[in-house]
Write a protein that binds this DNA or RNA. Structure first.
Lengths: 236, 236
DNA sequence: GAATTTAGAACTGTATACAATTCTGAATGC
DNA sequence: GCATTCAGAATTGTATACAGTTCTAAATTC
């Protein structure tokens, strides 16, 4: 029974807060307040915050402390492009390395998750299934470093995926769910052929399409969050 | 004048020690001893160590502390494959995004560094020039996240590059230097055509060739470090 | 009224203390 | 011999204290 460290608990809690904007983007993290809230002292909390700086969720300024990093459109683009980099190479490697047995198990995994994805369409579950598909393929590359990077990227764009799926949820949900699933099936089929170029291209265009979709959804969401300047004055 | 934080200084010092195997791979980092050596107390040192865990240089075990992560052949392969992922996508983006002016400046940079590379062939300088070439291209992608990931990968494989260049240094140095430079030129030429597929393929095969070269050098180096079992017994 | 100064509050940066855990090697039993 | 036990040493985990810095907003100046 591997005991989990307290600092790890703080990292996960705080990462979750950063992802869900419970820490306001761009604003300072109050160490005393947060440490009290999470039931620890500042020493282990600062250790956790330092890890999140290295993971890219927070920034640090000497003498000022830790700040929640904002997710502007440029950074979202950078992160999606990074996903393309990682996942295209991952599926190329998977074409070479995944065993037939692994591919068969992957097929069964898809069969099992598809009905789930279509029925109980809770947004955070859907995000989880979507991330799971991409992580699975990256695992088939048998490359721990690519997997680690993708896990980090997934965390950093989770909010974007959520906003995207939420906006779909409000409009024509089951149609979009079908579209997504068939896109995933196409990627799986490409992987089965073990043609690295084909599989890579399929993955690339899938992620690029998702990015366009997400950008649109995020712009709509920002329009709701950011109140124009002249309206803000009236709110003081 | 941006003041640099003490923790940042500790991070850099300790990272350097991890890269140069001044911390023995696989062994525990003694916090009190190291903090004394670096002129700080354990609190800021542990913050630095936590960042290096997130960067992949160290591992952490509850109750046991921080350990310097060993660089076995499998991990070296994973890291080189990750470089392929990042750099192939980076040069593809650079084909789209680099301005003509940027490419011209890059050309001049190559003209300037080449004679340097051929003459004063200090190993650590050569590693620096080599890293610089690859970082430069990745910068032309205008993607901060890819750049950040490559900086991390460069640090993690710096030892491998060193061992590789050192082994060359001992044999036919100037011939290898020429080979390297012309490989870099070929990549630059491919970038100038702005053909993403061509540039990507050129980059991929360059890195893969370097990996094969490095693997060989590392195996030789390990053969010198790791004494066979039956000889170790006699040393107790 | 706008810019500037300034005192005090709030917060960060780090050393240190001490409890809790792990490690080490000598003593013990088989 | 070889495994086991166990006490003391070494080391980690974290709370806390306090110095130093930054922030805030009231007072002051123009």
């Amino acid at each position: 029974m591997m005991k989990i460290s307290n600092v790890d608990r703080l990292i996960e809690k705080t990462r979750e807060m950063a992802i869900n904007f419970e820490l306001k983007p761009g604003s300072r993290v109050n160490e005393s307040a947060l440490s009290k809230e999470l039931g620890a002292s500042r020493t282990p909390l600062r250790e956790a915050l330092n890890r999140l700086v290295a993971e890219g969720f927070l920034t640090f300024q000497t003498g000022k402390g830790f700040f929640c990093r904002p997710l502007d459109p440029k950074r979202i683009m950078d992160l999606y492009e990074s996903r393309v980099a990682i996942e295209v190479e991952a599926i190329r490697l998977a074409c070479k390395r995944a065993t037939d047995a692994e591919l068969e198990v992957f097929g069964k995994y898809l069969d099992a998750t598809e009905p789930e994805y279509l029925s109980k369409m809770d947004v955070s579950d859907a995000v989880h299934v979507d991330e799971g598909f991409h992580l699975y393929i990256t695992r088939l590359s048998h490359n721990d470093e690519l997997l680690r990077m993708l896990e980090n990227l997934n965390g950093r764009i989770r909010f974007v995926r959520s906003v995207n799926l939420k906006s779909i949820h409000d409009t024509d949900r089951s149609h979009h769910a079908q579209t997504r699933l068939s896109a995933h099936r196409r990627i799986f089929d490409a992987l089965l052929t073990r043609d690295a170029d084909l599989a890579g291209d399929t993955m690339r265009s899938h992620i690029e399409r998702r990015w366009e979709e997400a950008t649109e959804a995020v712009q709509k969401a920002y329009a709701q969050i950011y109140v124009p300047d002249d309206m803000q004055k009236e709110m003081t």
